[in-house]
Design a protein around this nucleic acid. Structure first.
Lengths: 214, 214
DNA sequence: TGTACATCAGTGAACGCGCGTTCACTGATGTAC
DNA sequence: TGTACATCAGTGAACGCGCGTTCACTGATGTAC
């Protein structure tokens, strides 16, 4: 139960926070987004939540565990977004595939903290079964989309679907890392969205999946 | 001058190290390779070089400056490799272009410490004019290769060369980050070299630069 | 060849800092009767 | 409705640690004469 302090106007927390676990995750994400996985410290996350560092240990096993939870939530959101974009292959295998590519970049843009926690924090996907499952589900969507789209390629020039999806994933990830963030001062004269869209377009044309001229 | 200690058999350094600057860079690179940019500490690099942390300040302004030097040397090597691979566009614009793609991955594999210092350590390319120049020279090779190859594309479906090279760079970087290192436990069933080779191949076919069927 | 001396490249002690983690504790909450 | 008590979710003090950086210093080297 929270009360409004008549003087400060702030919501009083009282002794118990009530929602500390999720507040810590949120703090972790915003710190990671601002300062990179390096810059994140358990103590600072506790400070932002208005709580003693020791309190963190009521909810997490330690620093790593907190980051892992942030990544886990990221994979869950990511998988949901990808599944929604894919939409079971509607309206067409091609359109659905392209939508997942866009969803990848949209996710990286909208949830940069999660993205970093997932791909740059150095936590292993094998850390826990839940984390592994969430990551597998997310990547599975891309692979499913690739398998479905593969059927439209003449068999003799069809690459293995895993290779197909690995290419798309690599290009998406590369665009995110190099151009969708100011990392190494790398500025491209093109918006990342355009870069990815055209890149995937050219790639798909190479597979004979879109018309050679448009 | 170094003497051999008759008891330990070790080369005696004496008071002066003689080659401390480069030894520190080498230590920085191997630490960064092993532990990521996070794991690197000036003190540990000094320890590995058999020297007091304070000695580092005779050669570098501080921790950041040491990493920047490592990155600078990386860009120089990288640019040399790329230029050598490109070989002025011989034997053909296409072959030379593909060679630069392979050189990218080869560099990442052979000089992982440099690669991390360059692309994952968070140091800005704008830090010093030399760093900027080295990075520009390296990326310039890829762009030159893209410009030359572009001439072979019918004008009406020719993308801007910068976009072209950005695509290749993104895919190369993505392959390196996701598949050429054990980062997020991501194992692809394909060797990174194959992944990049086929990826670039399909992309180039999409541009009409290689035969649609081979 | 020998000596005086400037310069270079290290030492080692000290600093303040923030970190992750532990511990015994205590205030707040929920539940059984 | 009231009370006793278990459980939960915090506190705050303390720990040891390694870090980056500074400082006055000193040993080694190179050079001029």
């Amino acid at each position: 139960m929270s009360l409004v302090d008549p003087i400060s106007g702030m919501v009083k927390r009282g002794y118990h926070h009530g929602n500390l676990r999720q507040t810590l995750v949120a703090g972790c994400l915003s710190l990671i987004e601002k300062k990179g996985p390096t810059g994140f410290s358990l103590s600072e996350a506790a400070r932002e939540a208005g709580v003693t560092p020791a309190a963190v240990y009521r909810h997490f096993e330690g620093r790593e565990d907190l980051i892992a939870e942030a990544a886990l939530q990221g994979y869950a959101i990511f998988a949901d977004l990808m599944e929604h974009a894919y939409a079971g292959g509607q309206p067409s295998d091609l359109a659905a595939f392209e939508a997942t590519g866009r969803a990848y970049l949209a996710f990286a843009r909208k949830y940069p903290g999660h993205y970093v926690a997932m791909f740059e924090s150095g936590i292993s996907i094998q850390r826990t079964p839940e984390l592994n499952a969430a990551a597998t589900r997310a990547m599975g969507v891309l692979e499913t989309a690739a398998v479905a789209l593969s059927q439209h390629i003449p068999e003799h020039m069809r690459p293995p679907p895993q290779m197909f999806s690995a290419h798309i994933w690599a290009m998406s990830h590369g665009v995110v890392e190099l151009f969708a963030r100011g990392s190494p001062g790398t500025k491209s004269p093109f918006p990342p969205e355009d870069l990815l869209e055209t890149g995937i377009g050219i790639y798909l044309r190479g597979l004979g999946l879109v018309a050679p001229d448009r």
